[in-house]
Amino acid sequence: TSSHKLRLYERDDYRGLMSELTDDCACVPELFRLPEIYSLHVLEGCWVLYEMPNYRGRQYLLRPGDYRRYHDWGGADAKVGSLRRVTDL
């Protein structure tokens, strides 16, 4: 099985509160109590970021690497509604 891990930060450049995720999350704002995510670091696996909860809205593919600001993943703003692991490519 492949492993997945990413870290979410409330501010750009990996500042502020950090939360780690290793499984799908249908509602990021509810789980982490963060209305917006300004940076993230994908440590393992690929993920799909959705701008709205319950895997809706615009989708962004996140490969392992650094995303210091939301425009690094192509986002128009810092809204992160849900995240899902990519298990098949």
Rank of each mutant, 00 (worst) to 15 (best):
T1E: 09
T1P: 00
K5F: 09
K5E: 01
L6R: 02
L6E: 01
L6Q: 03
R7Y: 07
R7N: 04
L8N: 01
Y9T: 00
E10G: 08
E10Q: 14
D13E: 11
D13N: 14
D13G: 09
Y14A: 05
R15P: 04
R15D: 10
R15F: 07
G16M: 05
E20Y: 05
E20N: 00
L21V: 12
T22K: 14
D23W: 08
D23K: 11
C25D: 13
C27R: 07
V28Q: 02
P29G: 12
P29M: 12
E30Q: 12
L31R: 12
F32A: 14
R33C: 13
R33M: 14
P35G: 12
P35V: 06
P35K: 15
P35I: 08
P35Q: 11
E36Y: 14
Y38D: 02
Y38H: 11
H41Q: 10
L43D: 09
L43G: 00
L43R: 05
E44W: 09
E44F: 03
E44N: 13
G45L: 05
C46N: 09
W47D: 07
W47Q: 00
L49Y: 03
L49W: 00
Y50G: 01
E51N: 00
E51Y: 08
E51C: 02
Y55L: 01
R56G: 11
R58A: 09
Q59W: 10
Y60P: 03
L61H: 14
R63D: 04
R63K: 11
R63Y: 14
P64I: 00
G65N: 01
Y67W: 04
Y67E: 03
R68I: 04
R69Q: 15
H71F: 11
H71V: 13
H71I: 14
D72S: 08
G74T: 04
G74K: 08
G74S: 05
G75T: 08
D77A: 10
A78P: 13
K79E: 05
K79M: 12
V80C: 13
V80K: 03
G81H: 00
S82F: 04
L83I: 14
L83Q: 05
L83P: 02
T87K: 07
D88F: 02
L89T: 15
